[in-house]
Amino acid sequence: MSAPVLALSGLTRHFGGLVALDALDMRVERGQIVGLIGPNGSGKTTSFNVLTGIYAASAGRAEFLGRDITNLRAQAVYEAGIARTFQRSRLCLPLSIFDNIMVGNHKRLARGLWFNLFRRAALRAQIEGAFEEARELVRVFDAPLADRMFDAVGALPMIDRRRIEICRALISRPQLLLLDEPSAGMTEEETRELMDDILEIRGRIEGLSIVIIEHEMGVIERITERCVVLNFGRKIAEGTYRQVAAERQVQEAYLGVE
């Protein structure tokens, strides 16, 4: 079998005396959707932040498609093919939908000062091409939204912002998508819609793997093939949703213990 998309071994992060992430081992195979669950403060988002170069790892190793990506800079992690969303939406609100998606498209766009300032014809072709592509992607999520590509993101409701955030992460065609609590702040109905979209997009992008942090257990049960449960930074269970949900330790972590 080929190298897994993601292989973490002993990934650790301390903040002073606090161990936010404690020797996490985890594998994601190609095309898999893996859920990352656990109570608040259990280290889920920290693991994303360490993985994407926002925090340095205190110890351990992260491999992406067989390549060591431990402590790469955020920019290099993105270039390697990992894209993410954020728990609290981090879109550029004054900018248009198209602008925001183009932020995520950075690695496929020309960056040279000379090209951008003086090769206007070539730039024009690039803008038109990128626009078509971005609009197609948005259309998969929501057709009416695709007609509003030049609207400011700040004027959109939460669900549309989530969609745009996911589009921003997907436009660069990453191999691995990290979704940090995509259902936060949305109604059940909206969450279901968004999950439909995510499943559809996975079907369209060959070999896309997803790690999703979620609190909604319904979501986890529905879309993940495997999940990893964290508590106090440590992995306490792993398996299908049914398996982990049946484990006593997991129930205790979520419901507390006498």
């Binding site: 955020a74 993105y78 660069s172």
Partner: peptide
């Protein structure tokens, strides 16, 4: 200008 962390996560130097 708007979000340095997000910009870095999308490869912007």
């Amino acid at each position: 200008r708007l979000d340095e962390t997000a910009a870095a996560c999308f490869g912007i130097h």
